[in-house]
Simulated scan of single mutants.
Amino acid sequence: MHIQDVLPRNAIPSIDDPTFGTEYIGDDGEDVIVVETTPARAYPVRILSYHEIVNDVFGDSDRIESWSRPPGDSTDESRPVAVTWCPICASAVVYDRRVDGRVLTFGTSGRLADDALVMYDRETESEWKQPLGKAINGPLNGHELSAVPASVISWKQFRSEYPDGIVLQPVHGGDGDPRGESPRTVYEMTPYERYDAAEGFGLREMRGEGRERSWDREDIDAKTVVLGISHGGDAVGYPVKQVQNAGGVVSDIVGDLDVIVVSSGNDIHAFEDPGYEFELREGVLYGDGTKWDITTGRSVDGRTLPRVASRRLYAFAWQDDHGPTSFYGLTSATHD
């Protein structure tokens, strides 16, 4: 693991008191990280690219009940979470902030491990590698955070699938901004879009500094989007292309967990496999005599497939943590 200091601690400020609304400052096609609490919450990548961590609490009545949540309708009472995003790795993971009975609050350390965000917790000052969710230094070294089921979809999809959902509001810009800039201007995406479109990867490609890295695989690109699932000591990364080459639906076992991974277009989702024969046709999932929405896992007859906790990230970041044989559907992979 290669660790480097890049910025002072907290130079990229986390959001520790998030607020939510119904309006979004970005465009329809922009990605948001979605957690299906009640109501569903969207965390825009546009905002997370400038903050990287949101320390939030599901079930906080001061923030949820103001959006007309029916009493007792949430299954996430007082669940502290960290919604995390590493722009270099395109790594989106939501973690439970509870470790050994203690609630942790996360900030940015200013360090990178294998070009990935290193978070630190303010309670013990342990450092955590963001895509892995594991402490790599400090009193909690070796401890792992539990991932929370979440998805990455477009803002337009979120508005369609979760009409009562709420979205994280910007911290900067608008009324009172010292430069008089709008939130959209403050949260400018051009440098991140330029990085995503470039062939290279890592800090050097993002900022023109740091070590040069090479990618010696021909079966998958370094920036291929992968959905990674870790369970029971096993870890499998599902590249979008490989899932789509398999017809858009893959049934697999990770540890002792039966999963289905579904991909259409740029989207990829994982659910617990109930044992039905599934088929994807024109973006619609068919199984057990009914249709299922691949974004939400809901069927037209009212059933819902439980979403599997996962992380969406670039292939190079998954390989850094789990090795070259951890990809589904590739000749060197263990799951095929």
Rank of each mutant, 00 (worst) to 15 (best):
D62I: 12
G176A: 11
R303L: 09
S49R: 12
V225R: 09
R213K: 10
S310H: 10
E199Y: 13
L48N: 04
T19H: 09
S61A: 15
N10Y: 07
E199V: 09
Y314N: 08
I88E: 02
G255F: 06
D196Q: 13
Y328N: 01
R122E: 11
D73N: 13
A270D: 02
S66G: 12
K134T: 14
Y95Q: 03
P39Y: 02
T84L: 10
L7A: 08
A333E: 13
D76Y: 14
D252P: 05
W67F: 15
A113M: 12
S109Q: 00
G233E: 08
L257S: 06
V103G: 01
V236M: 01
D115N: 15
I294Y: 09
D288S: 13
A235S: 15
H322S: 01
I3Q: 05
P87G: 06
F201Q: 01
I3K: 04
I268A: 02
I229M: 04
A40F: 05
G174A: 07
A309I: 07
V262F: 06
Q244F: 01
P149I: 04
D336Y: 14
Q244H: 08
H269F: 11
S151N: 09
G202W: 03
V308H: 00
R179W: 13
V186E: 00
A222S: 07
K223T: 05
E199F: 12
V103H: 03
S91K: 01
F106C: 03
R98I: 12
V148E: 01
D164M: 10
M189I: 13
E52S: 08
E30V: 03
F327S: 00
M1E: 12
Y195G: 01
D175E: 15
R69Q: 13
S230F: 02
R303T: 11
V45L: 15
D177K: 04
G233A: 00
Y24T: 00
G228Q: 06
K129Q: 15
D293Q: 11
W85D: 05
D320M: 00
M206Q: 07
G21F: 12
V243S: 02
P191W: 08
Y24G: 00
V35A: 12
G297S: 07
E127R: 00
E30A: 08
S214N: 12
G289W: 11
P70S: 07
S109Y: 00
S146L: 12
D115W: 01
S154D: 07
F158Q: 02
E279T: 14
G283P: 01
D177C: 13
D76E: 14
L227F: 09
T304V: 14
